[in-house]
Design a protein around this nucleic acid. Structure first.
Lengths: 218, 218
DNA sequence: AAATTAATTTAGTCTAATCTAAAAAATTGA
DNA sequence: TCAATTTTTTAGATTAGACTAAATTAATTT
């Protein structure tokens, strides 16, 4: 069994590995964990002793198979609890993160699997991220950032990259939610801002917004 | 906010206070917490510094008002989660304790209150213990131990004193559950064992059993 | 290739929570 | 009452996880 802190490091490494394929640097991990590089070095040693990561001094870390399994299990729990909070308890999608950060560490295989069943085996969490199944398998997202699309293209909003309360509240305020169809009417060369059409209405959004919205092109 | 360990001590003191009205001794607390008396002394000092308990050397501890509020909040969460596990996820009453011990420490007032609403404000947990409401109020149990009853008396099973898996499994095996009517047909002077009638069938139970079953006399 | 800068690790300290062993206070009983 | 016993507290050590400051290694520039 792993400590709360170990689980959080494993999760962070898992998330960073998609961006840093060749290994996650100490500094990147310190930034992600909101801590100091020296603390990261300490923890990496602990994780390495437990064979959860592969580590050579000055080389960055990668998850071992055991480490990846553990990280995916935590992520599975996090996302299932988010679904529970929204679907069953009426939380808004901007309120679930902190609570799910706590619930993801509850240790009970039966609880996780019964919760999964109770929620009818959801495929995605409220932010559009895929939920691993009991074996750790999950669908790989077939999606692009809205900022990648060109004028004239059309797609459906399927997820958010930034799931901070601030960003989600901006989306709520502008009636942008998962499932909405978006058409790019114009795209500004200078600052990448876009004029989009959604629900028959036009809306201008900055690159900071479009670079955090995942789209599935139709 | 309190640490996991502090919350567990507060809960233990709360439970022991019903038995030790004049103050909970260091040894009793050490026994309940499965730890050493010296560890208890350390923690009592910490809790005392935070004004959660009243403590004088060699005198035992009592919860302050703040300490009592904190303990009741933890107990409220524990019991609500037990109801959730049984009612919504199909756990048996002998499987919920360890998981609820973890869930009771999740910090989110909104979560607790929405869970309470989702469960339709249950009054009692699966073991028959009362659930405090959001203000910390709960019904005081109007019940006696089955072992207190005399030959010829009749009552309804409303709770268990021991909620260990072993005891609950014994009850399951003998079809004893909350709500069942029990009549005392005979009571042995020598060992306090009883012959009871339940569901029209007779069953002989030892004092160890009857001293852990709460009954409401009709 | 040497010098500078940036990234990473080491060394040593700190805190919460625990432990063992020993000391001190309180209680009991002859 | 005072010696023996029990209970409680103190003293000192340990562990996980974090920190600061200093040292070391790697990377980048000139």
């Amino acid at each position: 069994m792993f400590s709360l802190s170990e689980e959080n490091y494993l999760k962070a490494i898992f998330h960073l590995e998609t961006a840093y394929k060749s290994g996650v640097s100490t500094n990147a991990l310190a930034e992600e964990m909101q801590t100091k590089a020296s603390s990261v070095t300490d923890m990496i040693k602990r994780l390495s002793d437990k064979d959860l990561v592969n580590y050579k001094r000055y080389q960055g870390v990668k998850l071992s198979e055991a480490g990846k399994d553990a990280a995916i299990e935590v992520i599975r729990k996090h996302r299932l609890w988010e679904v529970f909070l929204v679907e069953k308890l009426g939380f808004n999608w901007d309120e679930v993160h902190e609570v799910a950060e706590q619930l993801e560490h509850i240790k009970s295989e039966k609880l996780t699997n019964e919760l999964d069943k109770f929620l009818e085996y959801p495929q995605r969490d409220p932010h559009g991220d895929p939920i691993p199944d009991a074996k750790g398998n999950f669908v790989v997202a077939n999606r692009v950032l809205l900022s990648e699309l060109k004028k004239g293209e059309i797609g459906i909003c399927v997820g958010v990259k930034d799931s901070s309360a601030e960003f989600l509240q901006y989306l709520d305020k502008n009636n942008i939610s998962l499932g909405k169809e978006i058409e790019i009417k114009e795209k500004e060369d200078f600052d990448q801002s876009m004029l989009i059409n959604m629900d028959g209405k036009e809306l201008r959004i900055s690159n900071q917004i479009s670079a955090n919205l995942y789209i599935k092109t139709t």
